[in-house]
Design a protein around this nucleic acid. Structure first.
Lengths: 179, 179
DNA sequence: TGGTTCATGTAAGGGGTTACATGATTCG
DNA sequence: CGAATCATGTAACCCCTTACATGAACCA
């Protein structure tokens, strides 16, 4: 059982999903491709941590709706209670480029930051749009008992971090100076 | 040439380093183990992007001091000018645990957040201590022309992000409610 | 006296990406 | 009329971690 497996289980606690849906939902905190997710779901099913129902469709490929089992929920719960690894991973080639920014001209450096800023703003808007959909979905997402609660917390975290990085860019660009 | 190779080159632009040093310096933006770094340095040397000088030591193992070549600097410069990949990667099992936080009791949830907070504060203190060392090292790190400039920007970014996550925790914990 | 720092390397195996494969529907 | 969406899967390969290997100096 790797970490991603628990990520999939944590999604399925909220509601049954297809592998396709999981791939998209997972992007909030753990990016993974479908080619990794489908085999993992098959493994979880062999281990009886999830079950699936085959749903035939016309015009679209058939889909498998996965549901978490009691055994799966138990496995997830005990994993959550384990102490989390303190080291977490960030890999972002933009940061390497910033590190060696002195190698390129000021105009190119400004462009690097501006493009980053635009990409971050776009992600921020998409996130905020998704958050609004969630608010309509259920009455009280801010409630610990709500199944949306965890997702709601993570949205807020990401929004805060995106805004922080944007304000870092606003702070940094004047330091690069006039082109 | 993978992304990590460029990360190594970007470090070597600032000053010659040993593999051991690079492993530590790299933690600011790209976590990698020495077992990955040493073979990569050997590869970069074969490709004439870096050279090394063997320095014999007594009481400690001999070390290899790597220096970037002109060809290496050229390769790095053109990579920086390429458009960066928009997708960046975050993998943090704490986030999965938050997502499924409803599965565990409020007391355990509070503990999860508190331990995270402590770990973040420790990292923040270590970072701020490192930043002070850097300030003494050179006169004007805030200067685009300074070789410390890129590193300085990344420190500031990380400090901001750490503080933002800490304030997110302060916002989130009252929502969990009374234990 | 036991843990940390310095210092470099190899081997095995798991984790993750890219590419291949298929195909109807819907939107701009 | 081309691109995106829905939908699942396999194979090859690279990236990265864990474990093995060695050993003196220094600090608590």
């Amino acid at each position: 059982m790797n970490t991603l497996s628990y990520g999939l289980l944590s999604m399925l606690v909220r509601k049954p999903c297809t592998g396709y849906e999981l791939t998209k939902l997972l992007r909030l905190f753990w990016q993974a491709k479908h080619s990794q997710i489908y085999p993992l779901l098959a493994m979880l099913e062999r281990e009886n941590l999830v079950t699936f129902e085959l749903i035939g469709q016309t015009g679209k490929p058939d889909k498998k709706l996965y549901t978490i089992t009691e055994s799966g929920e138990g496995a997830l719960r005990s994993w959550i209670l384990e102490a989390p690894a303190t080291e977490n991973l960030e890999r972002d080639e933009f940061l390497i480029k910033v590190y060696a920014v002195g190698l390129i001209g000021k105009a190119e450096a400004m462009q690097l930051f501006q493009e980053r800023s635009e990409a971050l703003q776009e992600r921020l808007h998409r996130l905020e749009a998704e958050m609004e959909l969630m608010n309509m979905d259920e009455v009280r997402v801010t409630d610990y008992a709500s199944k949306q609660f965890g997702r709601f917390l993570l949205y807020r975290r990401k929004v805060g971090l995106l805004k922080e990085e944007l304000s870092w860019i606003d702070w940094a660009t004047p330091l690069i100076g006039r082109v």
